[in-house]
Amino acid sequence: MQHRYGFVTMPVVNYYFDVLKTAVEHVTGQPLTPRRWANGASWAAFITHDIDNLYSAWKAPAKSALRQGRLLSFGRQLWRHLTTPDAWDNLAQVQQTVASYGAKSTFFFLPEHRPAANGTPNADYKLQKVWPEAAAAIGTSEIGIHVSLGAPYHAHLKREEHRLQHLRNGVKAYGIRFHYLQWEPRITPVILDTLLYKYDSTLGFAEYYGFRNSYCLPFYPFDFQQGKSFSFLEIPLNVMDATLHHPRYLQLEPEEILPALTLMFQEIERFGGVCTVLWHNENFDPANENTGPHQFAEIMDYLRSRNVAFVNGQEICEQMG
């Protein structure tokens, strides 16, 4: 329906609720007070980062140089890889950049290093090995589990949860997001409910920005089998960096990104919702001129100019609870 009628960037459910709100106010003669976020802000922003890669910035330019027969350039890339930190090993930079806007980062780490059964890659790092440096880099930032491909079942997910819990000295991750936004409606919410995560932030589109559930606020998904809501809060994903300039997705020019997103932001602000942004750490690399640090800065400047409340997942759960 969203595709057929072209309303993926319009939170239709919020418009219906607004009609209901007006009717209730008319009947009762009492105004319904809108929700307020931190410091009295009318809407909120949830800034997140999926940590898929830490050591692969050199690979694409090295492969390109090798294919084109530029052996000297290939040798330089290889030497740089062997002797200097990778450009994507930048978690401290990510945390500091986001903090400079008065915002908070939530980092979703991939516990699985091995590729999925179909060969699709998971993390390019082993979490247990990199964790001491990663933990120091992100400080007190919120963490979540970025569930690997090939992990739709309870046992596998439970194992990934235990890995991260062990590294954090028993501190449970509040939230979860599935790698590649994989979501099986008949299975995934049941698994999440049994694991007692406070929130999930998977439900968004890779192909387009907007509202996968036509709603701009967090909500408790409904369990049609049990006839009641699930216990975890869904914080929908509104925009992912890869969506904006990827060969399979929108291919927006850098100067087109903020104007394209502004109408969606205005809809979220209108209804006092939460704007969830996913910007991978690899796209804080200055070499990315399409969905890189400059485009992220434009988005953050806009959000800050609109007096948004920057919140993390735990704070959203407390506000919605």
Rank of each mutant, 00 (worst) to 15 (best):
A103I: 07
K104W: 04
S105D: 10
S105M: 08
F107S: 03
F108H: 07
F109R: 02
L110P: 04
P111K: 03
E112S: 11
H113R: 12
R114I: 08
R114A: 15
A116M: 08
A116W: 05
A117T: 14
G119S: 08
T120N: 10
T120D: 09
P121F: 03
N122S: 12
A123S: 15
K126Y: 05
Q128W: 04
Q128L: 07
Q128S: 14
K129E: 14
K129A: 14
K129Y: 04
W131I: 07
W131V: 05
W131D: 03
A134L: 12
A135I: 02
A135V: 02
A137E: 09
A137K: 09
G139C: 10
T140Y: 06
S141P: 09
S141C: 14
S141I: 11
E142W: 04
I143P: 00
I143H: 05
G144C: 10
I145R: 04
I145K: 04
V147S: 10
V147I: 14
V147D: 00
V147T: 15
S148I: 00
L149F: 00
A151Y: 01
P152Y: 04
P152E: 13
P152D: 12
Y153V: 03
H154D: 04
A155N: 09
A155Y: 02
L157A: 00
L157T: 05
K158V: 03
R159I: 00
R159W: 04
E160F: 02
E160V: 03
E160K: 02
E161T: 13
E161L: 15
H162S: 13
R163L: 14
R163P: 05
L164Q: 13
Q165H: 09
H166I: 07
H166D: 14
L167F: 10
R168H: 07
G170N: 11
G170R: 08
G170A: 13
G170I: 12
V171Y: 06
V171D: 12
K172D: 05
A173D: 05
Y174C: 14
Y174L: 12
I176E: 09
I176L: 12
R177L: 06
R177A: 10
H179L: 03
H179R: 03
Y180N: 00
Y180M: 02
L181V: 07
L181M: 13
Q182K: 10
Q182H: 06
W183Q: 01
W183H: 12
E184V: 11
E184I: 14
P185L: 08
P185V: 07
R186E: 14
I187F: 05
I187Q: 11
T188S: 15
P189G: 11
P189L: 10
V190Y: 00
V190D: 02
V190E: 04
L192K: 05
D193K: 08
T194G: 01
T194H: 13
T194S: 13
L195I: 11
L195Q: 15
Y197K: 10
Y197P: 06
K198Q: 15
D200L: 09
D200S: 15
S201K: 11
S201Y: 10
T202Y: 08
L203I: 13
